[in-house]
Simulated scan of single mutants.
Amino acid sequence: MQGQLSELDIRSIFQLIDIGQQTGELCIESFDDQGQPNSWLMFFANGGILYAGRTNEQLERLQDILHPLNLSINWADVDLSNLAPLRPPEYGALWWLLENNHLTTQQARAILCRLIEETLFEVISLHQGQFSFRFRASLSPQLTDFSISPLVKRAVRQLQGWLQLHPHFSSFYDCPLITDPHQLETSSSLPSLLAMANGKTPIIRISRHLNRTIFSVADGLYPYVQRGEVQLSHPSSVGSKKATGPITGTVPRVVCIDDTLSVRQAIEMMLDTYGYEVTSIGNPVKALSLLFSLKPDLILCDVAMPELEGHQLCAMLRQAPYFQSVPIVMLTGKDSFVDRVKANMVGATDYLTKPFGEPELLALVEKYVGRGNPKRLAPGTLLEQEISATLNPESWSNS
């Protein structure tokens, strides 16, 4: 089952899944006002919903929701490497917390319900985009399932309340800021709400930290916004990764991982001409260790590779703190909706469809690391000499 949201609204899709007691995965993709893609993935079993979140969801949302519990967890030490590459990391982390007795079953179910409700609140108002439902064995293991109808009704009621706050509130990612902290020092109402009005924390994150719905947070801030005591900054792009230019005087470092020699050579030639420092790696297993030494600003990664598939490599890199913010662009010969969802699920920043030309490649690289420096000094060859034997499988010995 697939189609356009303009032809079948999301509530009707949920109703069909509920009535038909369907089991499978629902993928939804839409674009924001700036043309940036956003996508969500939801798992169902016999019509009940098991989990819902953005396809590129990592652990930030879960960490925010866990904040009121004051758990002592060093997330850098949490080993989630045994999870399947396309399994939602957030759901896997919730299971890890439950299995390691950081949460009770009741707490885990309540947190899971909150994750689902937040996602429904985000998607319920979408009228443009596309959806795809795949009938297949759903999420495993299963913590619990929730009846979709009551959750949708609650999301609709909250959305109706949210719409009453327009035009003051235009996005869940608006960041409230107290205009005059001294004026509100004596206020006894909503102290925790105002304490987070620092101009940097969006409404959706405030709601998680305070264990409140997005609408109730906005509704609590509304009187202060009306009186001008709190102002809202409106982000230019919601849910998208910001492009960052290179630091002055530095050369953006790009690593290309592709098992096809001709592709690596073409990318090296194009990017080197425009002043980028390019390293190509032919073997994904070797790449996994070399990347920690190279510390690239951008990674271009092929999808279909032997030994270690590109999605798996991306998922592994996203577990390391350093690579959680490094843009990773998947190079793929396919351009289907499902393939884009898979890329987003493992934390890929973007994708580039093969075959591509110089203009497409340069536009994408500039988007994430800015322009290169054609006048840069010739790079040293020491690192290249040290790792040249491992970069290209064509030079390996059969011994």
Score class of each variant (00 low, 15 high):
residue 341 V to I: 15
residue 351 Y to E: 04
residue 221 L to D: 07
residue 94 L to R: 04
residue 273 T to Q: 15
residue 196 M to P: 00
residue 294 L to I: 08
residue 306 P to Q: 13
residue 96 W to R: 06
residue 389 A to G: 10
residue 126 L to T: 02
residue 289 S to Y: 09
residue 399 S to P: 00
residue 399 S to D: 14
residue 246 P to S: 07
residue 14 F to M: 15
residue 121 F to E: 14
residue 302 D to E: 13
residue 250 T to A: 10
residue 178 I to T: 03
residue 352 L to H: 00
residue 33 D to E: 15
residue 195 A to Q: 14
residue 233 S to K: 11
residue 205 R to N: 12
residue 97 L to K: 01
residue 304 A to G: 05
residue 176 P to Q: 11
residue 386 E to A: 10
residue 290 L to M: 06
residue 57 E to L: 09
residue 89 P to V: 14
residue 70 N to K: 15
residue 195 A to C: 13
residue 176 P to L: 14
residue 310 G to E: 10
residue 228 G to P: 01
residue 387 I to N: 07
residue 194 L to S: 01
residue 72 S to Q: 14
residue 19 I to T: 11
residue 157 R to C: 10
residue 33 D to M: 09
residue 56 N to P: 00
residue 239 G to N: 10
residue 147 S to H: 07
residue 240 S to A: 12
residue 64 D to M: 05
residue 364 L to N: 04
residue 372 G to F: 06
residue 258 D to T: 04
residue 159 L to F: 13
residue 71 L to D: 00
residue 106 Q to P: 01
residue 271 L to Y: 02
residue 396 W to T: 04
residue 68 P to F: 12
residue 362 L to G: 00
residue 305 M to H: 03
residue 61 R to G: 12
residue 150 P to D: 07
residue 217 V to A: 05
residue 226 Q to Y: 02
residue 345 M to S: 11
residue 13 I to K: 00
residue 326 V to A: 03
residue 336 S to G: 03
residue 360 E to S: 14
residue 120 L to M: 09
residue 333 G to K: 05
residue 341 V to D: 10
residue 370 G to H: 05
residue 156 V to E: 15
residue 42 M to P: 03
residue 164 Q to H: 08
residue 398 N to I: 08
residue 63 Q to H: 04
residue 3 G to L: 12
residue 149 S to F: 08
residue 358 E to H: 01
residue 54 R to V: 00
residue 275 G to S: 06
residue 267 I to Q: 11
residue 132 S to D: 13
residue 312 Q to F: 00
residue 270 M to Q: 09
residue 257 I to W: 05
residue 252 P to Y: 11
residue 143 L to I: 04
residue 115 L to N: 02
residue 74 N to E: 15
residue 175 C to I: 01
residue 11 R to L: 12
residue 190 L to N: 14
residue 100 N to I: 04
residue 217 V to F: 07
residue 123 V to S: 07
residue 109 R to D: 11
residue 174 D to T: 01
residue 136 R to K: 15
residue 80 L to M: 11
residue 115 L to F: 01
residue 331 L to F: 09
residue 309 E to H: 05
residue 121 F to G: 08
residue 178 I to W: 11
residue 61 R to N: 13
residue 37 P to Q: 13
residue 384 E to I: 03
residue 156 V to M: 15
residue 2 Q to R: 14
residue 175 C to W: 06
residue 123 V to W: 08
residue 96 W to L: 11
residue 58 Q to E: 12
residue 262 S to R: 10
residue 38 N to C: 10
